[in-house]
C-alpha cells in the first residue's frame, strides 16, 4: 500500500528558502506569482493490506519523525 506525505512549514513560520525561490522566479519573468512555500515530499510503501491500519501508521510516522509539528504541517495522500 502506497502513500505520499507532504510536509510544509506552518503559515506563520518564515520560509526563507521559499521566499528566495519565489523571488528568483519573479526575476525570471513570472510577474503574476503571489508566493511560494517550500516543503518536503515522502513516498511511503507499506507491506500492509488493511488501509485503516496503514494510514494510522503513516500518521504516526509523521507525528514522531517526518514532521516537526511545532513548525510544520503534514498531509497524507493515499496513492492509487
Amino acid at each position: 500500500m502506497k502513500f505520499s506525505v507532504t510536509v510544509t512549514l506552518k503559515k506563520d513560520v518564515l520560509d526563507p528558502q521559499g521566499k528566495i525561490v519565489g523571488q528568483t522566479l519573479k526575476n525570471m519573468g513570472i510577474k503574476n506569482l503571489n508566493q511560494i512555500r517550500q516543503g518536503k515530499f515522502f513516498e511511503i510503501d507499506m507491506d500492509e493490506k488493511d488501509s485503516i491500519k496503514a494510514e494510522k501508521q503513516v500518521k504516526e510516522m509523521c507525528e514522531k519523525l517526518l514532521a516537526n509539528q511545532i513548525i510544520e504541517d503534514f498531509k497524507i495522500n493515499k496513492a492509487e
Partner: peptide, 16 residues
C-alpha cells in the same frame, strides 16, 4: 529540541 527536552525549533538562518 528534536527529542523534546527543550521547546521550540531551530530554523534555517534568515540570511540563508
Amino acid at each position: 529540541i528534536e527529542c523534546g527536552l527543550l521547546k521550540g525549533a531551530l530554523l534555517r538562518n534568515s540570511g540563508l
